[in-house]
Design a protein around this nucleic acid. Structure first.
Lengths: 134, 134
DNA sequence: TTGCGTGCAAAGGTTTTGCATGGCA
DNA sequence: TGCCATGCAAAACCTTTGCACGCAA
């Protein structure tokens, strides 16, 4: 059972109000500006814990991981769409994905962590923009 | 126009025969064992170039990037399972995933890039190890 | 001969870890 | 009081970069 330390509460509160996923150093900076300084290592530890608990998504990008608050994370069919062109993230729920998870669990003995599921591709807006290429 | 250096050819040849996506340091090790030592920096440079050219795919994971040789043949339902515990990567093909892609394209106007799909979770072996927890 | 490619080592950046201290239950 | 959590700094990694030399064209 995690202690309700000042740092833990601050991390959660500031993460919660982020419109977009944030990186750990970024969040530490936001906390500092909030008058709630939290050590970078602690930010990493808290975020990691939140990801494990299912309260946040951990998203690995090429420049490091970003985190996004996600209270609905417990739902299996909840995942992220990430546009490789504009970088936007979209939250989605989809029962078909849950079916896939079950299939993988039964046929391949693999337990998917739904909160880490990201599908990368091109969103509708970017597809329109780039109709001439690709 | 790239020079056909010994290193470039070696990288391509060894990458080509990998059953699974490999990380750059891993590939450098494979090359060394092949009697074709290539500097790590060069491996990175070649892989980067291959990715740009479209001959290989670069996949960002939590522990770094892995690369996979990618000839033209496109299999939509091919994706990666990544164990968050032992870090192992598994290659899989699954028609259900293709159905999901179609669903997303139609309902959400989102074109998934199949080669960037990674599902993270716990593999069978690690699940056995950790049966007392979780 | 020209200039791209290579190797080495060092730098750069992100994330993790060790250890002493502080704070919650 | 007993532990977990924190902070700091160093370490651990992966990846990139600078620079002089070598080799393909």
């Amino acid at each position: 059972m995690p202690y309700a330390t000042r740092q833990r509460q601050a991390v959660l509160r500031v993460l919660e109000r982020q419109a977009h996923p944030v990186a750990a150093p970024e969040l530490a900076e936001a906390l500092r500006q909030d008058g709630e300084p939290v050590g970078l290592a602690t930010v990493y530890r808290q975020l990691e814990r939140l990801a494990e608990t299912g309260l946040a998504h951990k998203i690995s990008t090429e420049t490091g991981a970003v985190y996004q608050y996600c209270p609905r994370g417990e739902k299996g069919g909840c995942f992220l769409l990430r546009c490789a062109f504009c970088g936007r993230l979209e939250h989605l729920e989809c029962p078909q994905l849950e079916d896939l998870y079950q299939h993988l669990a039964q046929e391949h003995k693999f337990q998917v962590d739904p909160r880490r599921t990201i599908l990368t591709g091109r969103c509708g807006a970017c597809a329109k923009e780039g109709e001439h290429e690709a």
